[in-house]
Each structure stands twice: as C-alpha cells, then as structure tokens.
C-alpha cells in the first residue's frame, strides 16, 4: 500500500516538474537595467500589481529594478487578460496597482468605484501578424490571412487584443474566419509557437518576446487600432505609498527604457 502511494506521488511530482519546465518562454526578458530609482525617498512593504498579460516580460524586469531601488519593497504580480483582472478587482481581489491593456477595462474598475480618474497612459501597443519562424505560408499582408488553407487564431473580442484585431480588420475591410478565438494574447501566440495555426494577430511586444519561435509582420492597418495602456493606483490599495512609487517608476525614464526595448511605443 505504502509503495503504491509513493509511486503515485512520484508520478505526480514528475508531471508537476514537467509542467514547470514548459513555461520557459515567459521568463525571457529584455536586458535588465539594474540601478537605483530616480525618486529620492525609498518605499517599503508589499506592492501588488495586477497587469495585462502583454506586460509580463517588461513588468517583471521593472519589478526587479524597483525592488533593487527600494530594498524594503516587494512587488507581486498578477498577470492575466485585462478584463479578467478588472473582474477580479471588482470582486475584491487585493490589488494596489492596475495596469490595463485598454482604457475600457480600466473604466470597468473606475465605474465600480475601484479607482478615480482615467489613469495615466504609459505606453501604446500595436498589433502585428505573428507567424511561425520561417513564415512558410509566405504571409505578408492582412489580406493574406483570408487565403484558403491559412489557419488564423484571433483573440476573443471580449479581451483587448481581440477588440483591437476587430478594429484593425474592420478598418482594413478584411474579413477573416479564424479557427479559434483565444482567451488572451499569450494563448493566441502559443498556438503560433506550436505551429497549430499559420498566423495570429498579437501585440508587437508579444511577437518580440517570442522572437525565437515567431516572426512578427507589421501591417499598416494596425495604426488604426493602437491600444493605450493606462496605469492607476486603486482606491483600496493596502500600500498606497508603495503603489504611487511603483507607478512613478514605470513612468520614469528607467521604466520607459525597459518598456521601449520590449517593443512598446511611448504614449
């Protein structure tokens, strides 16, 4: 009996180990700039930041830099689709800062009384066509995605990358029948990485972060669907001083440098 349970436990551990390994792409980060923050006074305590999935790589770097500049502070991130984050915040999830991939999701929070104002736009992001490395299907334009035999993944319209994709496709007058509507931008990108689809519309920053597996193809129509990323300190923040300092750090030149090197555009 005992040995049976040991075997089961071992099997479970192996599986858990395997699943932990499968995530290495997310930790690829642009060059970390270590240094002290420009802000004079340092802050302490835990700062909980809810941030859009597309900010994963750059915010992890910014978080490390912020902690280095404020030795007493610890930043914890919750990365997910902006709309899921907004729902979590409105349901009382403990967050100090919300960085959304679109103003609409921030508005959901402010409408529910979770924060005041419209936040500060700290970056803009633009869509590109992500194709598996090598671009075997020779996709060059948005119209190429309508060709028969080209499998396309889009984000669902409920999440910002899907809303942006719809806007870009509408302005271009291109009608695509995707094979799937993914729950967030990273899921759409994963389908490209695995070669299950021939193309997906993702943010430029996501394509850049996955540059080893994915080529990003710019298309002019994406200019019509640029996403503003607002950041805001939440009313119920447990650590308002830490939250303010983190937002200031994101908006500082050091924060901007990290974001730009990840492919974001200045607002």
């Amino acid at each position: 009996m005992t040995s049976r349970w040991i075997r089961i436990t071992l099997a479970a551990l192996t599986v858990a180990g395997l699943s932990a390994c499968g995530d290495d792409t997310k930790t690829a980060s642009p060059q970390p700039s270590v240094g002290s923050a420009s802000s004079a006074a340092t802050v302490t305590g835990d700062v909980t930041v809810f941030a859009a999935a597309s900010l994963t790589e750059s915010f992890k770097t910014i978080g490390k830099d912020f902690e280095a500049a404020n030795p007493g502070a610890k930043v914890t991130f919750n990365f997910a689709g902006s709309s899921a984050l907004a729902t979590q915040i409105n349901q009382g999830a403990p967050a100090d800062v919300f960085a959304s991939a679109a103003p609409a999701n921030l508005k959901t929070v402010t409408d529910a009384g979770g924060a005041e104002g419209t936040g500060t736009t700290f970056v803009k992001n633009q869509l590109v066509i992500a194709v598996p490395k090598g671009n075997l299907k020779g996709i060059k334009t948005l119209a190429d995605l309508t060709k028969p035999g080209v499998k396309v993944a889009l984000c669902a319209e409920q999440v910002p990358c899907g809303a942006a994709a719809k806007k870009a496709l509408d302005t271009a007058g291109v009608k695509i029948t995707p094979v799937t509507l993914e729950q967030d931008v990273k899921a759409a990108l994963a389908k490209v990485k695995l070669g299950e689809v021939d193309a997906a519309l993702v943010y430029r920053t996501d394509a850049k972060a996955a540059a080893t597996d994915v080529d990003g193809i710019e298309f002019p129509e994406s200019a019509g669907a640029i996403n503003d990323y607002p950041i805001i300190v939440l009313k119920k923040a447990k650590n308002p001083a830490g939250a303010q300092a983190f937002v200031a750090y994101v908006l500082s030149d050091k924060g901007k440098a990290v974001l730009t090197s990840a492919g974001f555009q200045a607002p």
């Binding site: 993944a153 799937t180 729950q183």
Partner: peptide, 26 residues
Amino acid sequence: ITFAGNYPGTTQTMPLAVYLALETDL
C-alpha cells in the same frame, strides 16, 4: 480551450462560453 480552441458552433462548449462571458459580463 488549449487543445481544441474556442470557436462558436464547433468548439465553444458552455464552460468556454462562461469563461469568455466573464471577461465582460458577469
């Protein structure tokens, strides 16, 4: 959602529809 994706009529089952509805409309 990971293996079959999400598309209304072919792969969007109720739990997937619930998840996406949750994104905008509780």
